[in-house]
Design a binder for these strands. Structure first.
Lengths: 134, 134
DNA sequence: CTTATATATTTTGTATGCCAAATATTTGCA
DNA sequence: TGCAAATATTTGGCATACAAAATATATAAG
């Protein structure tokens, strides 16, 4: 079985390539692809708990802790203890966080178009449909 | 733009999911998905240089160094200085390395079938064709 | 020949990614 | 009530991933 026929290799390679591409688009913002995704996911459910954000972004809880550890001192979000459940942290975007999330949204839209410019709309939909399944 | 429409998110998520799946299949062998891929790539060009292996596996040179650093003491391969060019290291599979690579080959074939069992052959080909492009 | 440049690899530093263990707190059940 | 089991989060350890710097060697230009 050659690498080019192996789905694990192909997915890992494409993910790395796409992350490199996206990273370039983010240049100057001081944000990584993952940080960008997390901020955008958070913007859709501002104030949610770490676990909820972990599910939404499908990032391991431990991984997310590290991401938040870096976004917080950067001034994009705050952790706030929950009044009802003292195990839980609520994550809230700051003003700056909301602002950058909105910027990231259009930047990401753009980056998507560029990255997939070789595909027509049907193919784009088909590829995405595949990826949602796995 | 929702995460489920973002190609960067979708690719990264699918790659993580597939790596988790493949990792489970490798359980007991003491090898990671990347290590398995590198060993299989190496089996196709035993004795090649680090750079060549880096290109073949599309892994960063620095990343590959670390992978080889772990595979070597495990007894799967050897680094040998090149007689012509003293900058270069040739990577050679040991007997054990060839043996495990062959085992990995069939295991990976199996794992591919399982992971993609929800797709018919045409869809499999189409998905792989997409991924080869990006 | 010698020096500037190019090439091959490793090292360093930062950021995921994930598992397992540790902590803290809540919930369910006897 | 009291305590075992469940839940939320963090921490520690190891393995990618990659950019930039460091190191070593080879090659080319003068």
């Amino acid at each position: 079985m050659h690498g080019n026929d192996c789905i694990f290799y192909l997915l890992s390679r494409s993910a790395r390539r796409s992350a490199r591409f996206y990273k370039k688009q983010l240049e100057g913002l001081g944000l990584t692809p993952v940080q960008s995704m997390v901020l955008q996911a958070l913007a859709l459910q501002d104030g949610c708990t770490t676990s909820q954000l972990s599910k939404a972004s499908e990032l391991d809880n431990a991984t997310l802790t590290g991401v938040l550890d870096r976004l917080s001192p950067a001034g994009y979000l705050e952790r706030r203890a929950s009044p009802e459940d003292r195990r839980t942290q609520h994550i809230l975007l700051t003003e700056q966080g909301r602002s950058i999330a909105s910027l990231l949204d259009s930047l990401t839209e753009d980056a998507n178009s560029k990255f997939l410019s070789g595909l027509n709309d049907d193919d784009k939909d088909e590829l995405k449909a595949f990826l949602r399944r796995f």
